[in-house]
Computed example of a mutant assay.
Amino acid sequence: MDTPHQPTDRVTRRGLLVGGLLASGVATLAASARAQDHSGHSVAPAEPAPTSAYDAPPPHLGAHGNMTTVGEVDFEANGFDPSALLTDWDVGTPSIENGRTVRTFEIVAEDKEIEIAPGVMFPAWTYNGRVPGPTLRAKEGDRLRIVFRNFGSHPHSMHFHGIHSARMDGVPGAGLIGPGEEFVYEFDATPFGCHLYHCHALPLKRHMHKGMYGAFIIDPDPALHPEFDASARSRLLGTPENAQWQEMVMVMNAFDTNFDNENEFYAVNSIPNAYGNRPIRIEKSRPVRIYLVNVTEFDPINSFHLHANFFDYYDTGTQLTPTLKTVDLIMQCQAQRGILEFSYARHEPGMYMFHAHQSEFTELGWMGMFDVVEA
């Protein structure tokens, strides 16, 4: 008598990588069908190989031998575009109360299915319908007022990595609210630096992994740092000194699509290979500043490696002099963050890669390109 077949193999991220897959079976078949059909997302034509070893590769062949997902994510349906997220600063609604600036932010928690790779959907929990949530930005010393409404299906909160009272900590009894409820967080913007916020509901790993996090930047007030006036002004949004910089925020994250506590996709700003498929344009005459935040779940560290260049690193961004000078790789554990500053002024124009230096992360989507051009 035949015994019904009982599958025993467990799909893991390493098994997927070895097998050449980028998702579980159903999602992979769906992505493949869409790519072959051509009626959905477009597929880029194959690029010719360089004719000489000294030729620069075309953009798509520069992405680790075109080892990327096939097709395109529908950014319009998602409601956010990773290219736009790079410089989408939410400065709130400013007002003057008792002689000081108060910035009011409106944040909504909601459940939302997003496409993280062509044909691969993920049931996210979001802030303002996007992953990562909006990048909140303020000036040192401002009063911050964050009106948080929970339209999701689970209790949620906003825990800010900054200085505030216990009543504003975003934990049970101090800003953790149920579905349909509202809470107002209020505290001073201090210290200056590159920070983050995230949900602190339990189980914490699930709330973090499903998308409830975002960058939180506090610009230094030059008046409070006269000995570093030039550096402080270069970081203060809206100043002529800051306008000379090419600033962007990169939130390193990953997605466990089959919920086995191992990630199948790695990315910056949520979409694997987004900046390999659409390189980031950099003017070689202007310096670059990256606000880098790691929120990767299920892996102890993530990393950022810059090809053919070196950067100065400001750990947590709470200093105006570099923590490390002239490095090309930085590691961050979850919730660690910092500021990278570098320049391509002495480089020739062309495509320059950046990626995680865990090879598995790179090959599962955490890779991008800078398209360095003359101004």
Rank of each mutant, 00 (worst) to 15 (best):
E227K: 14
T239P: 06
E247S: 13
G276P: 01
R206V: 13
E262I: 08
L224M: 12
M208P: 00
A254H: 14
R278V: 14
P287T: 08
G238N: 00
H195N: 13
A267P: 15
F265P: 00
N269E: 06
L204N: 10
T190I: 04
M250D: 00
P220I: 12
L202M: 14
S285G: 00
A201F: 10
R278K: 15
E247F: 11
I282V: 14
E186A: 12
I271R: 02
E186V: 08
F192D: 02
C199K: 06
E241T: 01
K284I: 02
G211V: 08
L237M: 12
F228P: 00
F216Q: 08
R233Q: 13
I217M: 01
E227V: 07
S234V: 00
Y185C: 02
A232Y: 04
E241Q: 13
L204G: 03
R206L: 10
I280P: 10
H195E: 09
P272S: 05
E186K: 10
Q246E: 05
A189F: 06
A232R: 06
E241K: 01
A223G: 13
G193T: 02
H209Y: 10
H195A: 10
A274P: 11
H198W: 10
P240Y: 03
F192Y: 15
R235P: 00
I218Y: 05
T239V: 04
E241R: 01
A230N: 01
N269A: 07
F255W: 15
L237E: 03
Q246A: 03
Q244S: 03
D256S: 10
Y197E: 11
L236V: 03
A232T: 07
D229Q: 11
N273Y: 15
Y197N: 13
E241I: 01
A189W: 04
A201N: 14
P220T: 09
H225N: 02
P272Y: 08
R278T: 15
G211C: 11
G211F: 11
E186P: 10
R286I: 05
P226L: 03
P222G: 05
F265S: 11
S231H: 07
Y266P: 03
P279K: 01
D221R: 10
A230V: 05
P222W: 02
F216C: 10
H207L: 03
P203R: 02
A189S: 06
F216E: 09
M208G: 05
H195D: 09
S234L: 00
Y185I: 03
T239E: 02
E247R: 11
Y275P: 09
G193K: 03
Y275V: 04
F228I: 00
P287C: 05
P191H: 06
P203S: 07
P226F: 06
Q246M: 03
H225M: 04
D260Y: 07
M252R: 08
P279E: 02
A254I: 12
W245F: 14
Q246F: 06
N269M: 08
Y213P: 07
Y266S: 03
R233A: 03
P287D: 04
H209W: 12
Q246R: 05
E227A: 15
S285V: 01
H200W: 11
A201Y: 11
K284L: 06
L236Y: 02
E262H: 12
K284C: 01
R235H: 04
V184Q: 11
Q244P: 01
E264G: 06
T190C: 00
